[in-house]
Nucleic acid binder design. Structure first.
Lengths: 368, 368
DNA sequence: TTGTAAGCGTTATCAT
DNA sequence: ATGATAACGCTTACAA
C-alpha cells in the first residue's frame, strides 16, 4: 500500500522530482549509451521514477518512435470459433509464446471471411501494429495483393506461395511427403500408389512433388496409373481403393502394395475400403496418411502418418515477422517447418519377397 | 491499381490537397456536428482524403484522444495452450465477437501464472489498452488488489466475488443449481442428496446455495445428512455413493432418491458407483451433474446436466468493459449468465411408492 | 554530462 | 463556417 497513484505519472513528474530535464529522464531510463550520465544523476532519476511510480506511456512512446512493440494477427474463419479450429489455436499458441518472450503485444484481428479482412486492411495498418501475421491457409491472393503494395512488414502463415514481395512460413509438405514415401520404400515397397487431395490446394501439389522426388531418388519409375486424384475426404480414399482394386484385378503382380494418402481422412477411407475388400492392413497392404489429424486415431487401426508442428509454425512466423520489423529479414524469405513421422499400425513390409518377386514377374506379364 | 502509396498519408497531405486547414480535415472526417461545414468543403476534404488514401494514424489519434479503441485480455494458464482450454477458448470467442462488432482491437496478454501477470500489470496499463478483461477463474486476489487501486477500467471474467471496486461477469451458479434441484423436485423427488465439489471453490458455495434455495422454495427441510462434501473428481462421486448407501442401509425410506452432483465428474463417479451397487439409473435413482463437460457424455448413460454459455460470458464481459470505458457502468456491477438445463438420461421420476419399497427391500438384500 | 526544442500525427480549444 | 495553435507524452537531434 504505497498510497494512491490515481493517474499514471508522466515523465514530467520524474524530471521535476529528480531535478533534471525531460530528455535526461528519457535517456537514463532507456539506458541510452550514447550519453554518459553521472552515477548520481542516474540514481536520482531512478529513485524519482520509482517514487512516482512512473511507467512510460506506450502510445506516446509509440508515436515518437514509430514502433509500438505490437504485432497483429489476422485470421478469418467460418468455424464457430478460434478455439474450435486446432490449426488456428496451435498457431496462435506459438505466436503468443514468442511475442511474450520478445515482449511484444499481440493484437488479434478475427474476421468472418477474407473479404471482410480485405475491407479492414486499413485498420490493420493504422500504425497500431508494427507488422502483421496472416494465418491464411488457402490461396487467397486479393488480400495479399492489397498488403504487398504497402510498406509494412507482414508474413503469411501456413502458406508458401512463391512471391518475392512476401515472407512465408509453412509446414514443409514436400520434404514430409518425400520422407513418408521413403519410409514406405525402406519397408520394402516399390509399388506405391498416391491418393491425392483437392486439386486446387497448394498442399496437394506439394505432397505430390514429395512423392515424385522420393520415387525418383529411389530409382522407382513414375507410374501414372498409381496416381489417384481425389479430395481430402474419407469417401475418396474408400472409392479410390475400389478403383485401384478393380484396375489391377487381372494383374495382381502390378498391384501397389502401399498407398500414400495425402491426408488422414483419405487414409481412413482407404483402410476401410481395403478391409471391406477383405484385405488386411498392414499385413497385406500398407496405407499411410498425413497431418496426424483426428482421423488418424478415430478408429482402428491407428494410421501411420506425418505430424506437423503447427505450434512451431506459429513460433517461427512470429520470429520471422519480428526479424522483418527489425530490418533483419527482407521479403522473399521462405521458412519451412519439418514434420515428424508417426509410426503406427498401418504400414509394414510388403508381403514376403518370394511373393513379391512373383508378383513383379506377373507385373511384366500384364504389360503386354 | 492507384499507384504506390508507399508511406501512409497523413492529415497534412489531405489538408494541402483540399486547401483547408488541418482542423477542418479532422472535423469533417470525424463528422463533428459542432461545426457546420459547407457542402463544397466537405466534398473537397473527402475527395482529397480518398485521393491520397488517407487513414488516420491510430497511435497519434490515441495519444490525442486518450482512447485507443483497444481492450486487453489477460489470462494465465498452466495448460499448454489457449486452445486446449475450452473455457478460455470459448470466452475469448465471445470477447472477439463483441470487440469486432464494436470495432475495438483485442490485445492478448497470456501469462504462465498470475504471479507473472501481477508483475506485468504496468505493461497492461501503459495506455495501449483502454481497459482490461481478466479471465481469472479462481480466487487470486493479489492481482485484483493491484488493479483495483488504479483508475483504469477492468472486469473480472468467470468470477463473481463481492467487491465494490470491480465489475464481474460470471455464470449464474446459484440460479443454475436452484434450477437443477427444482427440476428434480418437479420430477417428484423430495429426498435429494448433494455431492459437493472442492471446499475452497467459490462455485461450490454458490451451487450449495442454489441447492438450499430450491429446497427452501419447495418447503423441503434441509437435511445435513444428505450433504456430502468432496472434490470435483469422479472418485468422490463414487466413494460418496458408497457412503450414502451405507448410511441409509437400515432405513430405506429415508434414503435419497436423487443426487445433485456439483459437476459432471462427480456425477459420472456417482452413476458408476450406483451401478456397481446394482442400482439402475435413472429408474431407481436419479443423478444429475453440472457444467455439461466431457464427463457428461464420456460414457453411458449420458448425464442430465446444466450447460453454461461460456461464449456468452465472454460477450457480456466485453460489453461490460466497453460500457465501463464509456463511463456508463461503474464498479460494483455484477453480471450473471444463465445456464441451460440439458435433459439426458440420468434423471427421471423416483420409483413409485409401491415399487420403491420393493426395490428398497431388494436393495437391502444385495448389500448383505 | 546535461538541457533545449523540434517533432511524431491527431484532436480540441479557442479565435476569427 | 474555418483556421491557428496548443496540447497529448515521449524521443532525439542538436546545443551548451
Amino acid at each position: 500500500m504505497t498510497g494512491n497513484e490515481e493517474v499514471a505519472a508522466s515523465i514530467r513528474e520524474v524530471a521535476r522530482e529528480a531535478n533534471v530535464s525531460l530528455s535526461t529522464v528519457s535517456k537514463v531510463l532507456n539506458g541510452r549509451t550514447d550519453a554518459k550520465f553521472a552515477a548520481a544523476t542516474r540514481e536520482r532519476v531512478f529513485a524519482a521514477a520509482s517514487r512516482v511510480g512512473y511507467h512510460p506511456n506506450a502510445v506516446a512512446r509509440g508515436l515518437a518512435r514509430k514502433r509500438m512493440d505490437a504485432v497483429g494477427v489476422v485470421m478469418a474463419y467460418d468455424q464457430p470459433s478460434v478455439t474450435s479450429d486446432p490449426y488456428l489455436g496451435a498457431c496462435l499458441d506459438g505466436i503468443l509464446k514468442v511475442n511474450k518472450e520478445r515482449r511484444q503485444k499481440t493484437v488479434l484481428f478475427t474476421e468472418d471471411s477474407w473479404d471482410e479482412a480485405l475491407r479492414h486492411v486499413p485498420s490493420y495498418l493504422d500504425g497500431h501494429c508494427d507488422g502483421l501475421l496472416l494465418i491464411i491457409p488457402r490461396t487467397d491472393s486479393a488480400i495479399v495483393e492489397e498488403l504487398a503494395g504497402r510498406s509494412s512488414c507482414f508474413v503469411l502463415v501456413g502458406d508458401s506461395r512463391d512471391d518475392d514481395r512476401l515472407v512465408t512460413v509453412d509446414v514443409d509438405n514436400v520434404a514430409a511427403a518425400r520422407r513418408m514415401v521413403r519410409h514406405l520404400i525402406k519397408l520394402g515397397h516399390t509399388r506405391i500408389a498416391a491418393f491425392g487431395g483437392n486439386h486446387d490446394f497448394l498442399s496437394n501439389a506439394q505432397r505430390m512433388e514429395g512423392y515424385r522426388q522420393a520415387l525418383a531418388a529411389a530409382g522407382i519409375p513414375w507410374r501414372e496409373e498409381y496416381v489417384f486424384p481425389g479430395e481430402y475426404f474419407p469417401g475418396h480414399g474408400y472409392n479410390n481403393v475400389g478403383l485401384l482394386l478393380g484396375m489391377f484385378e487381372g494383374r495382381p503382380a502390378e498391384r501397389p502394395t502401399a498407398i500414400f494418402c495425402f491426408n488422414d481422412a483419405i487414409a481412413r477411407g482407404a483402410v476401410d475400403g481395403l478391409r471391406a475388400a477383405g484385405i488386411r492392413v498392414p499385413e497385406e497392404f500398407s496405407v499411410v496418411g498425413f497431418d496426424d489429424s483426428a482421423h488418424a486415431v478415430s478408429s482402428e487401426p491407428h494410421i501411420t502418418t506425418m505430424r506437423h508442428d503447427i505450434r512451431r509454425v506459429g513460433e517461427r512466423a512470429a520470429e520471422a515477422l519480428l526479424d522483418c520489423i527489425d530490418g533483419g529479414l527482407g521479403p522473399g524469405a521462405r521458412v519451412y517447418i519439418p514434420a515428424e513421422l508417426v509410426e503406427r499400425c498401418t504400414a509394414a513390409a510388403p508381403p514376403s519377397p518370394a511373393t513379391s518377386r512373383a508378383e513383379e514377374r506377373g507385373d511384366e506379364k500384364t504389360i503386354r
